[in-house]
Amino acid sequence: MESGHIVKSFDDELNQLHGIIAEMGGLCEQQLALAIDALVKRDRLQAERVIRSDKQIDRLEEEVDNLAISILALRQPMAEDLRSVIAGLKTASNLERIGDYAKNIAKRSEALTQSEQLGNATGTIQRMGNLVQGMIKNVLDAYLEGDGDKAEDVRARDEEVDLLHTSLFRELLTYMMESPGTITPCTHLLFIAKNIERMGDHATNIAEYVHFRVHGHPPGEARQKGDGSSTMVVEPMGN
């Protein structure tokens, strides 16, 4: 991005920090893809692998914390360097949360292995998952390249995830009203969808840190939000 520090080991440490975050981001993408795949294929073993792998993300977050604290204490970074370390810390904690959500999806997909597929719900979840996976990938690219525009683009895409979530919420409520036997799988699916929606929110948080890192201030404009599920009421049929 710019010329290096006079003290080269400072550059090495910053690169190391970004390297760990890149690795965390890669793992998060993979965990999300595998968790949804386990859900679609009703694959219990794969779900278990996802649950186990989450520890690796947690370990990496710890590494980021330790390195960032040591950089703050020993290098006393200023300006872009300071923003870079702070953005790194916050990004890692958001990635860690994304990892947790993937793990939770895997757990719920284990619980769903016994149940039938419900309409197009899994398909919608897959679409949401693909979208969010793309957001995580692009926001990480934006982070590593210090590209504010790319980050802005990720922020804009969260609305689409929110809209899908809202429509899925409506669909699942309808199934539950039609047949109380679907309440267990539908509830799990609702939480899975909510998890993916939250992952999208974390990706947009990271996009905001990239903006802060590049421009020196948080993005000003409030982004469009499309999630209407929190206020939705579906009237029982026949009323």
């Binding site: 710019e2 010329s3 290096g4 520090h5 006079i6 003290v7 400072f10 970074p77 200023m78 300006a79 872009e80 360097d81 300071l82 923003r83 421009h215 020196g216 201030h217």
Partner: peptide, 15 residues
Amino acid sequence: TSPDDERTQAYITGR
């Protein structure tokens, strides 16, 4: 935290 000029940035970050 966020200087406007690149020269300031380069100086205070030790570049």
